[in-house]
Amino acid sequence: MTTLIPDPRPAVAATTPPPADPPDLLDMLESEALHIIREVVGELERPVMLFSGGKDSVVMLHLAAKALWPAPVPFPVLHVDTGHNFPEVLAFRDAAVEHYGVQLHVASVQDYLDDGRLRERSDGTRNPLQTLPLLDAIEVHRFDAVFGGGRRDEDKARAKERIVSLRNSFGHWDPKNQRPELWHLYNTRRRPGEHVRVFPLSNWTELDVWRYIAREDIALPSLYYAHERSVLERDGMLLSPGDWAELRDGEEPSVRTVRYRTVGDMSCTGAVASTAGDVEAVIAEVAATTITERGATRADDRLSEAAMEDRKKEGYF
């Protein structure tokens, strides 16, 4: 008769835990952004957050409140106002500032035009005129860190940025002189007069931002969702009519159902034809698109192949 000898090894199934679920991408992105915000607030004395009321800056302020809870957000927000901003966005900006209990600084391009420090451009757009008011506000308030909502998927120049990016005493950026960021270690050291730009959303995509907005139930200005608006078609873009430019021959405004993927100066920010009236519909629309929001809707980035990089070198965000 054959004798069966018991296997002396322990039963693997009884001691090995089931495989863990893979980490959620939004959890990972959120954790990284919270870490960046906490590091900068802990290391630097006078940070500020750029806040226009647009979706990326709204998500960034939400993250700041979450990162530092239960303490209030300990730094102010700064808006560089071109004077051509969407009224809906300005109203939302003011409501958000009140909701989060933060101080708002406004650097006005119009003030610089009124006193001659800047001149209007022939094309009517004021986005490129934001650099000088921004740099002056940083100097006047002695900000040593400026949080911005730039993401690497938006533009080739923004893809070159480090998460913590040094600006020299003139506010200029040198894309060839950047610091390594291995193992989530960020170098915030600077000399007097210098400051750092900090991009907590660097590794996010437009789709990530919208999925996070849905998950966190974050409110946004209404023009991010489909609505009827008078627009004119110019250079392949749907622009809101305004007093910044005369109508060209053949241009006739018409009422269309549109939404905005990004918000900025009305003279160079285009709408897209869309029926996406809620966040889930927007997510489905963004998931199917093959063009970034800046590539599709920002005329100022079409000025040249390196338009964004040239402005960033001069101090633009």
Rank of each mutant, 00 (worst) to 15 (best):
M60H: 02
L113E: 10
A64W: 07
D111E: 15
N85Q: 15
H62P: 06
S122G: 13
D94E: 15
A96I: 08
L113R: 03
E43G: 12
F86D: 13
M49F: 12
P87S: 05
Q103H: 15
V58C: 08
N85K: 10
K55M: 10
R121L: 09
R126W: 04
H62V: 07
E98H: 05
T125G: 03
V97Q: 04
V109F: 01
D56R: 01
L118D: 10
V58H: 03
G101D: 11
W69V: 10
A64I: 08
L104S: 06
R119L: 14
F92C: 00
A107R: 04
S57I: 07
L61I: 08
V77R: 09
D114C: 00
L78D: 01
V73E: 05
G124Q: 00
G116M: 12
L50H: 12
R119E: 15
L90S: 00
M49W: 09
A71T: 14
D114P: 03
E88G: 11
L63M: 06
A71R: 15
H79P: 02
P76A: 06
G101H: 01
L50K: 07
V80M: 09
G54Q: 01
Q110Y: 01
E98V: 05
Y100Q: 00
V73H: 02
T82E: 06
P47Y: 12
P87G: 14
L104M: 11
R46Y: 04
D94N: 15
K66G: 01
G54S: 10
D123Y: 12
Y100F: 15
A67L: 14
P74N: 07
S122Y: 02
G101I: 06
T82K: 01
V102N: 04
W69D: 15
V48F: 06
T125Y: 07
D81H: 14
R117W: 05
G116P: 10
V77S: 02
S52L: 02
V80D: 01
L44R: 09
Y112F: 14
P74I: 11
P87V: 04
V102D: 11
E120M: 14
G42M: 06
R121Q: 04
L44T: 13
F75W: 13
L90F: 02
H105I: 08
